[in-house]
Amino acid sequence: MVLIFAVTTGVIFACGIYLMLRRSMVRLIIGLSLLTYAVNLLIFSMDDLSTRGAPIIGATEPEKMADPLPQALILTAIVISFGVLAFTLALAYRASQAVQSDNMDVLQSTDREV
């Protein structure tokens, strides 16, 4: 279980970073979202990965409960990354319209003297 988890997280990280290093805006955004998923998995693995009960009083014995905090952290992180990625998507769409290209290398007008 731990091995599968570690390998999966690592592969997603690698994919995300690989995609982010491409020149395409769309790939950049897919890469960013993969990166956030990988981080969520990483935080999830901070708890014991064995199967435990839901951390709800009454449903599970306190000794057999999973740690609720990493789950709460992930939930918050998902919410935040949802908002940020939606904004990034809209931004990239507008930017690609403005520069008529999907290529990140074209975005240089702010770095040059006019």
Binding site: G83, A86, F87, L89, A90, Y93
Partner: peptide, 13 residues
């Protein structure tokens, strides 16, 4: 409202 506004503005575009 946030989700709707994002999706709607993208759909309009």
């Amino acid at each position: 409202s946030v989700t709707c506004s994002i999706v709607m503005s993208m759909a309009e575009e």
